[in-house]
């Protein structure tokens, strides 16, 4: 597994997360890297998920990816 690819993906996530939008589809990630093999990107993302650099966020029907640091905190009972 290419550590470079993983690093690049994380950089892209940071860059793209500068605005309000923090959650991305896996399709967004493969589009950021049109020259990379789609399967290699997916494998790299899976490793980043294992390392908890990225996290899954799901509505129940569709799944997004988000940098762990931006994962929404649970709201305490107010």
């Amino acid at each position: 597994m290419s550590e470079n690819l993983k690093k690049h993906i994380v950089e892209l996530f940071h860059e793209k997360s500068k605005g309000d939008k923090k959650m991305f589809y896996i399709r967004d990630v493969t589009k950021w890297l049109p020259d990379e093999d789609r399967h290699a990107i997916q494998d790299a993302v899976k490793e980043l998920l294992d390392e908890e650099v990225l996290k899954y966020w799901s509505s129940g029907s569709s799944t997004y990816l988000i940098l762990a640091e931006f994962f929404p905190k649970e709201e305490p009972c107010s």
Partner: peptide
């Protein structure tokens, strides 16, 4: 809707739901 999605190693199987009136 949405949020937490799983247990360790899993990205599916859990569907996060929160009340919008926890008060």
């Amino acid at each position: 809707h949405g949020g937490i999605v799983g247990v360790k190693g899993y990205g599916s199987g859990v569907i996060g739901r929160y009340s919008d009136r926890p008060d």
